[in-house]
């Protein structure tokens, strides 16, 4: 199954198995689109059911949300640069940008956790109302993906450091790059249809 090697392609596309993994991951991302769409649909149905609890305007902190957004957008950019460095076969550059990406991701997570703590202090918990249940689960699922991504990427960085840039490590890096950009796509919709929409209600 490692046959059919094409060295004229970028490292991550060289083996047939790598090409299959990348395609498989794209299809998995398709499933993720549906997964998040379902969470958005739940939020879209329940978002005004405050049940006497806090409303959007009561709890949202737009300044912090803007910072979170910029952090995640920047991390998507640095991830792109990391892959770009990988295609220049620059291992050091790749690892540097990769780590920067994860730091930005960690910053995003830190702010999101603070945001959750703030909500809970405001008396807005997952159990308060249907609106808050759907909000917490939508944001939490995205946050859990970011968390998972950070751990996963750490594994991959260790492998790059140990093994260098091989068709396998390059493929793994490329795939986590796709994952990271995808999380940014999801965040754009959260930013738009949860935060901004909540503020203009």
């Amino acid at each position: 199954m490692s046959a059919n090697v094409n060295t004229s392609l970028p490292l991550e596309y060289q083996t047939e198995q790598s090409r299959m993994n990348i395609l498989g991951f794209w299809i998995f991302l398709g499933a993720e689109i549906v997964l998040f769409a379902t969470l958005f649909s739940v939020y879209g149905v329940l978002y005004k059911n405050y049940a006497g609890g806090p409303t959007h305007q009561d709890i949202f902190m737009m300044k912090e949300v803007m910072i979170q957004t910029v952090l995640l957008l920047t991390s998507s950019f640095t991830m792109g640069v990391a892959i770009w460095e990988m295609r220049r076969n620059n291992k050091k550059g790749l690892i540097g940008w990769f780590i920067l990406t994860l730091l930005l991701g960690a910053g995003f997570l830190f702010m999101e956790i603070n945001e959750f703590i703030h909500y809970i202090h405001e008396g807005a918990t997952m159990q308060t109302s249907a609106f808050l249940s759907s909000l917490f689960v939508l944001l939490g699922t995205h946050g859990a993906h970011v968390t998972f991504g950070i751990f996963w990427a750490t594994m991959v960085i260790i492998q790059i450091a140990k093994r260098g840039l091989t068709p396998v490590t390059a493929r793994k890096t490329f795939i986590i790059g796709l994952y990271w950009h995808f999380l940014d796509v999801v965040w754009i919709f959260i930013f738009t249809f949860v935060y901004l929409k909540g503020m203009v209600l």
């Binding site: 649909s41 879209g44 149905v45």
Partner: peptide, 18 residues
């Protein structure tokens, strides 16, 4: 094709459910 179909499904799920 994959992303287009999944986006179609996503729109159906969100718009349809609401």
């Amino acid at each position: 094709i994959n992303i287009a179909f999944m986006v179609f499904c996503a729109v159906v799920i969100v718009v349809g459910s609401i």
